[in-house]
Design a protein around this nucleic acid. Structure first.
Length: 430
DNA sequence: CCTCATGATTTTGC
DNA sequence: GCAAAATCATGAGG
């Protein structure tokens, strides 16, 4: 609309400028007659009303050529006019005052909250933001979100997830680059056009700025779409990843061995401390919560059916016994009197269990945990008190924990391989 | 396909 | 919040 205030656009100029930016807010409304090259030249004959269309057309055809020439001449004359610069600046001023004031409200673009959300999410997911490492961060975030905490080097799905995320990231960035490039190209193109036009019509610098911002807004809308679809892709990937994690997969044999070792060697009190869990998790290549799950399941299932697990228990007991006899651990000092001390119980005393847990198995078989316990068994009566079901002195916590546990378990047979399975007192077993 | 084993999740009690 | 118990869901073996 502002065009009209400026009077008729110069020939050929009416369309070029603002019309380019198709959806300009406020409407690039062509002024009536703006497209008529002869509109201002006065060459257009009046009396269009009652003539035949054919006649009109014919006239227009002939007149247009005529008026174009005329317009060229006028344009030249105008450009050479000594008052032109002054006139130009005045026109610019008027235009600014009128045209821009209308849009002033639209000028300041509020930060789109949705865009912010998308940006934040992409950042959090590691799609946007700094290169590399983002993937693992995102995976960690995903893991955290799933409530588990996953060992970062573990699963196949994990690397799969990361690679997929990297893929998305790559696509996102290349698309973003493309958009940016296109935006820049388009902007310079428009700027050039405007500059070109500024020779023939008043184009204030502010108008150019506005145009640029309009273009940027348009392109940022496209970018937003890109971000949105990227977010969706990430969400889908994530949900798939989480679903995949949900799928049960048996632990490795070695992991089960390690866990069982610990379980049967701490049968009187199979409640690993946080540190012990962490060590076990590290050893088994699983998460701490998985360790917790495992022990939870193990305890309940063992208790429910001791008979069934007896064989297993004996196997591990034998193992521990063997590992003791040939283990070469000649620790005779401080065998960590189990459970006589208050809180920790056998494995809570970090000096004992954890230290052993931390020791890598000599030959790859990580039996150190059981070695500790076995060592304890073979050392002094204090050690036996723990596992032989004699007078057990549990810490308050153990008491609580074993409230249900000690009734069913602490079988004397388990830790002494010489005894048969029959000796289990399965008072609570079904 | 059925059954069992087993890891994970949910519910419940403390 | 932790552990027990129940339950779900899936993998593996027959």
């Amino acid at each position: 609309m502002d065009e009209r205030l400026l009077g008729p656009p110069p020939p050929g100029g009416g369309r070029g400028g603002l019309g380019l930016v198709g959806g300009e807010p406020g409407g690039p409304g062509e002024p009536p007659g703006g497209g008529d090259p002869g509109g201002s030249s006065g060459g257009v004959p009046g009396g269009r009303g009652k003539q035949d269309i054919g006649d009109i057309l014919q006239q227009i055809m002939t007149i247009t050529d005529q008026s174009l020439d005329e317009a060229q001449a006028k344009k030249h004359a105008l450009n050479c006019h000594r008052m032109k610069p002054a006139l130009f600046s005045v026109l610019c001023e008027i235009k600014e005052k009128t045209g821009l004031s209308i849009r002033s409200s639209q000028e300041e673009e509020p930060v789109d909250p949705q865009l912010m959300r998308l940006d934040n999410m992409l950042l959090a997911e590691g799609v946007a933001g700094p290169e590399k490492g983002g993937g693992s961060a995102a995976a960690a975030a995903a893991a955290a979100a799933s409530g588990g905490g996953v060992s970062p080097d573990n699963s196949i799905e994990h690397s799969d997830y990361r690679s997929k995320l990297a893929q998305i990231r790559h696509i996102y960035h290349s698309e973003l680059e493309k958009y940016e490039q296109a935006c820049n190209e388009f902007t310079t193109h428009v700027m050039n056009l405007l500059r070109e036009q500024s020779r023939t019509r008043p184009v204030a610098p502010k108008e150019m700025e506005r145009m640029v911002s309009i273009i940027h807004r348009k392109f940022s809308a496209i970018q937003m779409q890109l971000k949105q679809s990227t977010c969706e892709a990430v969400m889908i990937l994530r949900s798939r990843f989480l679903d995949a994690r949900r799928k049960r997969r048996n632990f490795s044999k070695q992991a089960t061995e390690v866990l069982n070792e610990y379980f049967y060697s701490h049968l009187s009190n199979p409640y690993p401390s946080e540190e012990a869990k962490e060590e076990l998790a590290k050893k088994c290549g699983i998460t701490v919560s998985q360790v917790s799950n495992w022990f939870g399941n193990k305890r309940i299932r063992y208790k429910k059916n001791i008979g069934k697990f007896q064989e297993e228990a004996n196997i591990y007991a034998v193992k521990t016994a063997v590992s003791v006899t040939q283990g070469g651990h000649s620790r005779t000092s401080s065998p960590t009197p189990p459970s006589s001390a208050g809180s920790g119980g056998s494995f809570n005393l970090s000096g004992s269990g954890d230290m052993f847990l931390g020791m890598p198995g000599l030959n790859g078989d990580s039996y150190s945990a059981s070695q500790v316990e076995s060592l304890r068994h073979s050392m002094g009566p204090a050690g036996y008190g723990d596992n032989l079901g004699g007078g057990q002195m549990y810490s308050p916590r153990e008491m609580r924990a074993n409230g249900g546990w000690q009734e069913a378990v602490t079988p004397s047979s388990v830790t002494s391989p010489t005894e048969g399975p029959g000796s289990v007192h399965s008072d609570t077993s079904n």
